[in-house]
Amino acid sequence: MAAKPRLAVFKFASCDGCQLSLLDAEDELLALADLVTFANFAEASSRLEPGPYDIALVEGSITTPHDVQRIQRVRDESRFLITIGACATAGGIQALRNYADHAEMLQAVYASPQYVSTLATSTPITQHVTVDFELRGCPINQYQLIEVLKSLLAGRRPRTSPESVCPECKRRGTVCVVVARSEPCLGPITQAGCGAICPAFARPCYGCYGPARQPNPASLSRQLLANGLPPARAVQLLRSFNCQATEFAAESARLVQLQTNRGFQP
């Protein structure tokens, strides 16, 4: 990589929280600015330099015809393209439109929806271009982001854990909310990285970090339904911030199919 690599940050449909994680790294921010040039980071700097860039951080999902084109340009201009957050890696909460009548949704928000140029779907970046690394989470963990950047600068693979929330939760010493209270917790199928905060705050994990590596969502569904969770609610739990993540999408579709075809039998 160049002596001082050039970093760019691009935003698509998102809340800005993942790129804010960079500005939230208060202790590392100024040091990081010595290691990389913020060549195009509109939220932080008015100096916007044209590409090519060594590293592009991409936040947000693709929801407009214009953004379908724009992500191609970002890819062309960037050596490493890193997606940050649930919107970029799994469509975000706005991908709930993929399961609904988009025209009707637009109508619910806009009096004159014909003026609004938007796609019927919200899709992850990887459905449009090759992605070099995906950093998950809604929002991402700023320490993981710093780790990813430092890894790239050092020319090694980022060390982010693919394990599920459960080991992280155990290490934290939290009593299991599924075992002790029969709560519908997505921890067993969700990727670690948040610090297993929800169970520590006495509530079940809602899956904002997306699927862990090789999850077994069918097994979890069976358990949750046996604990009395209504099937429609099980579908809804999987269809939230990471609803377009492959494993969550497949399991929610399977549950819907089961309900539709033969009444629900877990």
């Binding site: 449909a13 929801t63 953004d67 909460i93 949704m105 619910a108 609610r233």
Partner: peptide, 22 residues
């Protein structure tokens, strides 16, 4: 050119407990 995300529409049908998270 911030794309709309249609929150008011996607909240419909969700349990009210999810409103602060969404």
């Amino acid at each position: 050119y911030e794309p709309p995300r249609l929150f008011e529409a996607l909240l419909r049908g969700r349990p009210l407990e999810e409103a602060p998270d969404i």
